[in-house]
């Protein structure tokens, strides 16, 4: 996916808000290619939502430019930026932003441009079918459940066949079980349609489950991009590591380089025989269902505590000495920027 024209590109895009000397978006470069599902992940206030709104045309960049399909839609080089309604994008909002005064089918109908009545009704039916809302055409948004509402929001955004689908924290108002279910559904739908999408989320599971590529943002700066596996296994820094749950900082003594290791990648080496891994002392053990959460103090990095998920917890107790080694290749795999 390198030499094709990206569907959406940010070129050194900057965006400030009044009364805040930090830039919300600070000279970001990013390309989204056709067929990709890119997840933007970061803390609240990291600039990820700003980036999405800039793409949608809901905000204007203070510097740099934004290209859609190779055409500049906003930026210093054009006099009048392309307004949101002319960008052919779909956007699924955090809370759905469904039109409360329109029925389910008229919500979906809202973005359609086809004049032909038959074609319209067919399209509406197809979209509702796709998201599993067939039979609820005449309901009003407030008569739907939370999950149904987000599905409707998706159907509405997909109905006009947007070039690019933007999703802004689409699951954040749902309870965890529903969230998981809907996440799977939406991934399937997007993959089936081959829909290019840009997802903004602070939930690592969303990103890992849906995205084909993950982009980590902090303080308006791009921190790391890569496949879900890459960014999970090989975080570029502490911030990136902590996006996806607990991570342990491990120093390579030879090079002095920092790496981050996941708790489930820890291996317990009971005796002091092998030269593998680092010597540790067990600080605390907690049984968490199938595994044990073991906190260990590495002898080589005084003052730090590592979190390890170990099956051997049963036979261990605080104060035990041992070694911890980490699964996976030690050298970093491609991560950019």
């Amino acid at each position: 996916m390198s030499d094709r024209t990206p569907l959406l590109s940010f070129h050194a895009v900057t965006r400030h808000y009044r009364g805040n000397h930090l830039a919300a978006v600070n000279g970001i470069n990013l390309d989204v290619f056709r067929g990709e599902i890119v997840a933007l992940i970061g803390e609240s206030g990291s600039g990820k939502t700003s980036l999405l709104r800039l793409a949608a045309g809901l905000e204007s960049p203070d510097g740099g430019e934004i290209l859609l399909d190779g055409r500049v839609v906003a930026g210093e080089t054009i006099a009048r930026e392309v307004p949101p309604e002319s960008r052919q994008l779909g956007l699924v909002f955090q809370d759905g932003a469904l039109f409360p005064h329109l029925t389910v089918e008229r919500n979906v109908d809202y973005g359609l441009v086809v004049k032909d009545k038959k074609a319209r009704t067919d399209r509406i039916a197809a979209c509702l079918e796709l998201v599993g809302l067939a039979g609820k055409e005449k309901r009003f948004p407030h008569e739907l459940s939370g999950g149904e509402r987000q599905r409707l929001a998706l159907a509405r955004a997909l109905a006009p066949e947007p070039k690019l689908l933007l999703l802004d924290e689409p699951f954040s108002h749902l309870d965890p079980a529903l969230r998981r279910k809907l996440r799977e559904e939406i991934r399937d739908i997007l993959q089936r349609l081959g829909q290019t999408a840009l997802l903004v989320t602070h939930d690592p599971e969303d990103a890992l489950a849906i995205a084909s590529r993950v982009v980590i943002i902090d303080g308006g700066n791009l921190m790391q991009t890569g496949t879900p596996a890459e960014v999970y296994r090989y975080p570029a820094n502490q911030y990136c590591a902590e996006r996806f749950g607990p991570a342990n900082r491990v120093l390579d003594h030879a090079t002095g380089k920092e790496t981050w290791k996941r708790p489930e990648d820890a291996r317990w080496i009971p005796c002091d025989v092998a030269n593998e891994g680092d010597p540790v002392v067990i600080e605390a053990i907690r049984e968490m269902g199938a595994i044990y959460e073991v906190r260990v103090a590495p002898g080589t990095q005084p003052g730090e505590i590592w979190l390890c998920f170990l099956k051997e917890g049963e036979i261990l107790k605080p104060g035990d000495h041992g070694r911890v080694a980490w699964r996976g290749t030690p050298e970093r795999v491609a991560w950019k920027s």
């Binding site: 309604e85 956007l91 809202y110």
Partner: peptide
């Protein structure tokens, strides 16, 4: 914003 993005 939803309406704008839906082409209106």
């Amino acid at each position: 914003e939803a309406s704008r993005l839906l082409g209106h």
